[in-house]
Design a protein around this nucleic acid. Sequence first.
DNA 1: CATAAGTATTGACGAATGTCGATGGATAGT
DNA 2: ACTATCCATCGACATTCGTCAATACTTATG
Lengths: 122, 122
Amino acid sequence: MSTRTPLTLEVAQPVCCAPVTQETLSAEQAVVLAARLKALADPARLRLVSLLANAADGEACVCDLTAPLGLSQPTVSHHLKVLHQAGLLTREKRATWAYYAVVPEALTELAGLLAPAGGPDA
Amino acid sequence: MSTRTPLTLEVAQPVCCAPVTQETLSAEQAVVLAARLKALADPARLRLVSLLANAADGEACVCDLTAPLGLSQPTVSHHLKVLHQAGLLTREKRATWAYYAVVPEALTELAGLLAPAGGPDA
DNA sequence: CATAAGTATTGACGAATGTCGATGGATAGT
DNA sequence: ACTATCCATCGACATTCGTCAATACTTATG
């Protein structure tokens, strides 16, 4: 078994591959990376991530997110689920509320796959 | 015609906004950013970017890209158009060939919007 | 136990997307 | 001129996606 990284995060391990600019992606790698990016490539979901990242305690419940987005509760729940399944958000249920928070490392890793840390020509 | 930079780059200016984690996105900003990400959030297009970034002279023509992708020529042309319109690729027509190349700064900027340069907690 | 509130799921619908074959336009070579 | 090659566009199709209203589930409160 694993000797470390007991995290039960949906997807805590590296996405798949080297930065897009450094190695040619295989078909499978491309599918995995595209799935991650697709989770972010939506206006409502981008705003959710942004709202959560800038929230008071770094978290918020669904009921606090519907108003700012101007979307119905089922729709917001749907988007949060997509982001959570992509490993971009954590979910914690306290009482009747479901609190979501961003996983900073997930965003960082994604960014690193688009462009190597020090810029493309560093 | 032009004395320099004959490039007809669709979008060379900054996307729109501050990093997602630093400021809450407005509805309009989210739409713009999502459009950019959506251009990348496809397996075929990710592979195209990857192939171009790792190509011999940093560029390739359509005819060289259909085989590696296993897609028809119209489909590849379509994807290249999407990437070009998103400002992620340049396009130069020489003779009968159309040469595409990645715009590294576009990828870098996109990465910077997902996660600030030095990591989320730097 | 009954009620209220927060959330997730289901079903439905229109819109957008990825793919291809067919077609048309432009350029080089014979 | 004629042909061959490369590329973009068009039309069509199946699939996916974003959204909502309605419903069911869970937990706290009266």
